Amino acid sequence: MTLIILAHPAFEKSIANKTIIEELQRSKLDLEIRNLHELYPDFKIDPKAEQEFLVRHDTVLFQYPFYWYNMPAILKQWFDVVFEHQFAFGSKGDKLKGKNFLASFTVGGKEKDYTLLEKHHFRVHEFCKNLEQTSYFAQMNFIDPVYSFRTSQADGYTHEEIKSTAKAHAEKLINQLGEI
């Protein structure tokens, strides 16, 4: 069973992330979704409740838009509060050991912009080292992130282009989750 930690500050307005979640829900996968902004609009995350959900699932999928080369603030807050000492790490912190860790996110711009000589200077994968280290530190199985470019109307992409990209993204996730 897969737990989806959804962290989108404006999910109802989203095209890409909303389409990805809708496609995942239509799949035959056994999923449970935790929409952090819906659950914790005040950012006061209940660590014990979240830990109970984590313990019950074999795979954790983090779904979010790529913001300022990282995750949205609520997801960072979630990690800070939920991945506690003696739960996710420490001498007795083995509650997540062996569980799968998969980040899935959307990137508004073009892939070519995320190269050494372009405006963002780094490939997107290079911004994921914190995810990989968090996974390893919690003794989880890190799975390479799934991400898609060209998912923002602000970057000039149409509703139809974004939806098409998001559907292809969801298909990758469905296949990946089906293989785990």
Rank of each mutant, 00 (worst) to 15 (best):
T2E: 12
T2M: 10
T2A: 14
I4E: 04
L6K: 03
A7H: 04
A10W: 05
S14G: 12
I15M: 09
N17A: 11
N17I: 06
K18H: 13
I20D: 06
E22S: 15
L24W: 08
K28P: 07
D30C: 12
L31P: 08
I33H: 09
R34Y: 10
N35R: 05
H37S: 12
L39V: 07
P41V: 02
F43V: 08
I45P: 05
I45D: 05
D46E: 14
D46F: 05
K48N: 12
E52N: 07
E52G: 02
L54T: 00
L54P: 01
R56H: 12
H57D: 00
T59K: 10
V60K: 00
V60G: 01
V60S: 00
F62H: 11
F62I: 06
F62Q: 03
Q63P: 11
Q63F: 10
Y64S: 11
F66P: 05
Y67G: 08
Y67K: 05
Y67C: 09
W68T: 06
Y69V: 02
N70P: 06
M71D: 08
P72W: 06
L75G: 05
L75K: 04
K76W: 03
W78K: 00
F79N: 02
F79C: 03
D80A: 03
F83R: 01
E84M: 03
F87R: 00
A88C: 02
A88L: 01
A88H: 00
S91L: 11
G93D: 00
K95I: 00
F101V: 01
F101R: 01
L102M: 10
F105I: 02
G109Y: 04
G109D: 05
K112R: 14
K112Q: 13
D113W: 14
D113G: 14
T115Q: 13
L116N: 13
E118M: 13
H120T: 07
H121K: 13
F122W: 15
R123T: 13
V124E: 04
K129S: 14
Q133N: 14
T134M: 15
S135M: 03
S135L: 02
F137D: 01
A138W: 01
Q139I: 00
M140Q: 01
F142M: 09
F142C: 11
F142K: 06
F142G: 09
F142E: 09
I143Y: 09
D144K: 12
D144R: 09
P145I: 03
V146I: 15
V146E: 14
Y147K: 05
S148H: 10
R150G: 09
R150N: 15
S152W: 04
S152Q: 06
Q153Y: 07
D155M: 14
D155T: 08
Y157L: 04
H159F: 13
E160H: 13
E160D: 15
E161C: 10
I162E: 02
S164P: 07
S164T: 15
A166G: 04
K167Q: 14
A168F: 07
H169A: 06
A170V: 05
E171Y: 11
K172D: 14
I174R: 05
I174S: 09
N175Q: 12
L177P: 02
L177F: 09
G178E: 07
G178K: 05
E179D: 12
I180E: 13
I180C: 15
